[in-house]
Amino acid sequence: MKKTAPVNKIIPFSNVDGPGNRTSIFFQGCSLECLFCHNPETIRLCRHCGACVPVCPAHALRESGGRVVWNPSACVQCDACLKACPHLASPRVREMTAEEVFAEIRRTAPYIDGITVSGGECSLRHAFLQELFPMVHSLGKTCLMDSNGSLDYRQFPALLSECDGVMLDIKAVDLQWCRTLLGNDGRMPLANLDFLLQAGRLQEVRTVIFPGFPEENGRTVRYVAERIGDRCDYKIIRYRPFGVRPDGIRLLGDECTAQEDAEAYAALARSLGASRARVI
């Protein structure tokens, strides 16, 4: 049987998922449950509980043989199903083979620099990507991974040889802060940071700055800046409360990080040698 992967969405043209114009493929399912995730409906796979079916105003969802079935052509993208989901999932997911995903990329290929796979967490789909990336390379397009780094990249040498770069999130570095934010000890992304730098596969690092946590923010930014130097881009991102779950809002608040605060961390990173640090 062909390998498939759950695809939440394919955006034909994106200017915010890596350099140039890229087709972005968002997989469903994440390895983390970050408190500040702003697309929490991509975290888990659908359990087919049916809670979303009655709330759909367009009758685009139905239950059939114990499964929730989504009809994309009837869907009006109102997100009522996502709000009703008790499991941080979405019924609007297509199980696709690499060939099917590639068929959509073939259409956008004349207009793009490459593709970016994102999520959820794309590295969960490593076997699928190992099939997809060579197809994309055959069109002369690049393949980037947008990843939380929670899986051990040392285990995927074949995939890495087909991947043009990883855009890695370093969300936190202290043990306690990692447990609070990410729900685990947060060691693996740090190991991956070193490994990907060494392997020449680190495209960029991203860190979200939280309002009201200057010590935690400072430690993360210093850690990353000292390691990466000028070897890759460092994107400083402002926390935004949109889509964040109530638990996250309780801890992190309902206001965006001020632009000038974010700029100060970018300046800090640059002062430590991360010359390519900037706020996006």
């Binding site: 969405k9 955006i11 043209f13 994106s14 200017n15 915010v16 998922d17 972005s24 968002f26 994440c30 970050c34 500040f36 995730c37 702003h38 697309n39 991509t42 994102s118 999520g119 959820g120 967490e121 947008d146 939380n148 999130d169 969300k171 991203r206 979200v208 991102i237 926390y239 935004r240 949109f242």
Partner: peptide, 11 residues
Amino acid sequence: VQHHEENSACQ
């Protein structure tokens, strides 16, 4: 309008 869509799962 050609919008970028806010889609990166992690902020």
